[in-house]
Design a protein around this nucleic acid. Structure first.
Lengths: 201, 201, 201, 201
DNA sequence: AATGAATGAGATTTCATTCAT
DNA sequence: CATGAATGAAATCTCATTCAT
């Protein structure tokens, strides 16, 4: 099957990554065997190794994909001029995604990444970039807002950014352990927190 | 079969668990081999299998140990009559621990557990209990406070508890990826958040 | 199926064999992958399999090529009427070749063949023929010389032929392991040996 | 099976190496699979990897063993005071071994080593040492003999040493390809050669 | 109770070869 | 005739666990 188009190659690559996400979300990186991915992707071992040099590289590729996706979400959100609506958009983008079952799979894989980052420097780098992007953006938004007097100058923008991210990360974790968790009250609290950053009268 | 004292047995067991924590925090559960634990513990494979039936059981034992430790922290904190100081104590207990290098190792292992819980029901159970305890306690405290008028009745106690836990979990993660992270501004924001729960005048 | 000229086909074939020699001399038969040959030949796997049915057949083809080449050398040498000059020509032909870097590559492949002959009957056959030809020729020359009284009748012609071949084979081996080896004194010794075959006065 | 004696370990190691020699002599290094060695040695894969880190290391260990054995032969031979008998002893030691079927196996493996040395620097080093030892010794013996006037000063000792070694190496090769080869006439020629080194009257 | 050599299923990866285009 | 993606058997090596001593 020679001389195939780039889109053919891209489709095959995506096929492998999608299969890997399903497997990883189910069994974790290390309990997932290449055989599992082979089966899930309906390809052969050799075919997979034509696209990725190793299992590790598949994991990396998934992490990078995540990274790219989140960057896109942020870039989109940032287009809003109004500060409140930027934050709102970010919030909706991230929390909204959690309702998509497919995205849930990917979040499960993200948790795997957090663990994997501890021993795999390449994953660490990707995960770190994945958090640093949002953090810097949020931090910049808050700084802007402070200049406009919309947020108290007492607030440390960086810490606030971290706090918001933590609120999301923690929610992702807790949702994994308890599917019945209700998102609405949690989001209201997040709003309460965001309002608490406003300058006190 | 030499007969030895219980304290001897306990010491051996602790020796294994400590060694395992060091290994797991370094390489993760799955990249840690029994050989690694053997080496780190300065025992032999056979000896370890006298105390634990499998590698999985070692992981479980560590998770349970964590669980017990955190329950102790909470029980201690709860002794305070004043609500603000209970929350303060809890906050200090959890965040304060992070300064201890030994405890940092264990937090690294906790992150591993979060990932492991996805595919190991026994770990999931332990991890879940580890979160449910604090959550219920915090929730109860908030409910109490609401009754006393110290916290707005608008607040969903359970969601607030989750939010506080998330603030901690997220901090643990972000600290892993960026050791230079500063705890002080983060804690101030946590306080800001807690205050924002008070009834508005 | 485009129709191409025979010379085109021959050129393609030679291209593959040359590439294979380079690869084999570098990494040996078994460490050389078809991919290596593909790369070196600047062709594609499919193209190569149009000319050879398998990797084994490429090895065989190289062995046969060697064989043909050496037969040519011997045929040429034999044209000399004088016995001493036949031997001299043979000696020069074989040892002289070793100065050509390209030929050195092929000698490296020959050593591989010696090993390969142990388990591959087809290679064994080719290698054996490659030695038997020279051996029989040398043996015949010596017998002739004995009849003419130029070589002692004590000498076993076949053993003498083997001995000369061994002198060459051993030199090829030792040259591989020590490039600084000096050919001149070695050749003088070979002459000494040849002279020692003359009838004692 | 813990706490076993050193001799137990040595026996196991030898068991593996012996099995490997059988396999390698039959199929060559690269066609021999670890499974073959496992079967032949009647051990398990894991057991073998307790003694050797890789297949390559098994090959190396065999090469080193050869090397040690040959050094022993030379050391023994050297004990003779008389030059002629030293050479005779060396000749007998090396050629005599070839009659032992077990030793024939090992010679087959030696031929493999010659090929392997081309791409494996560690094997090259061992093979080279295995040739350099005898070469230097033979060279020294010839130099001695020249001082005593027993060998012509025209002879280059080093080249003569190489020549003798070549006579052996070539014989080993040719014997592999033709089992019916007769050793006696060959050895007589070797003697003729050695005598031809004496100073001419 | 401790030791550590042995086990052997199974994991990752390779690579000669094929065949649709 | 050429291409090169796909195949899948098979190779090397790992590692949790066992058990004779």
């Amino acid at each position: 099957m020679p001389k195939v188009s780039q889109s053919y190659l891209d489709a095959r690559r995506a096929q492998i990554l999608d299969a890997a996400v399903v497997c990883f979300s189910r069994e974790g990186f290390h309990q997932t065997t290449m055989k599992d991915i082979v089966k899930q992707s309906k390809l052969s071992p050799g075919a997979i190794y034509n696209y990725f040099e190793s299992k590790e590289q598949i994991i990396e590729a998934i992490a990078k994909e995540r990274h790219a996706k989140e960057r896109l979400l942020l870039t989109e959100a940032r287009k809003n001029s109004n500060i409140a609506s930027v934050l709102e958009r970010i919030r909706d983008a991230f929390f909204g995604e959690l309702r998509d079952p497919n995205e849930r799979l990917r979040k499960r894989v993200s948790i795997q990444m957090w663990a994997e980052a501890q021993r795999n420097p390449r994953i660490l780098k990707i995960v770190r970039r994945g958090v640093d992007g949002p953090r810097k953006l949020l931090s910049a938004i808050i700084s802007d807002a402070q200049r406009k007097g919309e947020i108290s100058i007492e607030v440390n923008p960086n810490a606030a950014a971290r706090f918001m991210i933590a609120a999301f990360q923690g929610f992702v974790l807790q949702m994994e352990w308890d599917r019945k968790i209700n998102e609405q009250p949690y989001l209201r609290l997040l709003d309460t927190f965001l309002k608490s950053l406003s300058p006190s009268v």
